[in-house]
């Protein structure tokens, strides 16, 4: 089990990775959109936690590229962002994300619970 965390805030990266690693999950980290696209190809994660506001390439633009790449079409993705505008939500929906979570509204364990919920379903 390998989860790609795409997040530029180091404190958040540490928080989510700590929680996931404590549950025995392997964690790959990308701090910008471009790296995320590359890592999807090279690291082949099973699940992606994707932020939107990112340096170089935004989360949604990165996801578009990921969806176009060979292994990225069906990759389960949860958007984890503090943006809560309808615009981003709709865009994310069109890119077949599993969920759109507002970071502030969810504790790390709640996020993990969502990941588990979606992995169980698939």
């Amino acid at each position: 089990m390998k989860v790609l965390i795409v997040e530029d805030d180091s404190l958040l990266v540490k928080m989510y990775s700590t929680k996931l690693q404590s549950l025995g999950v392997e964690v790959v980290i990308a701090e910008d959109g471009e790296t995320a696209v590359q890592l999807v190809k090279s690291a082949k994660p099973d699940f992606v936690l994707l932020d939107i506001m990112l340096p170089k390439l935004s989360g949604l633009d990165a996801l578009k590229l990921i969806r176009q790449s060979a292994g990225g079409k069906k990759l389960p993705v949860i958007i984890l962002s503090n943006l809560s505008n309808e615009k981003e939500k709709k865009e994310a929906e069109a890119l077949q994300v599993k969920d759109y979570l507002v970071k502030a509204d969810h504790t790390p364990s709640q996020v993990v619970a969502k990941i588990q919920q979606h992995l169980k379903l698939t």
């Binding site: 805030d9 404190l11 958040l12 928080m15 989510y16 503090n82 507002v102 970071k103 502030a104 504790t107 790390p108």
Partner: peptide, 10 residues
């Protein structure tokens, strides 16, 4: 929201 997420999360 970001710092609040950090506080709440930890």
């Amino acid at each position: 929201r970001t710092p609040m997420t950090i506080i709440k999360g930890y």
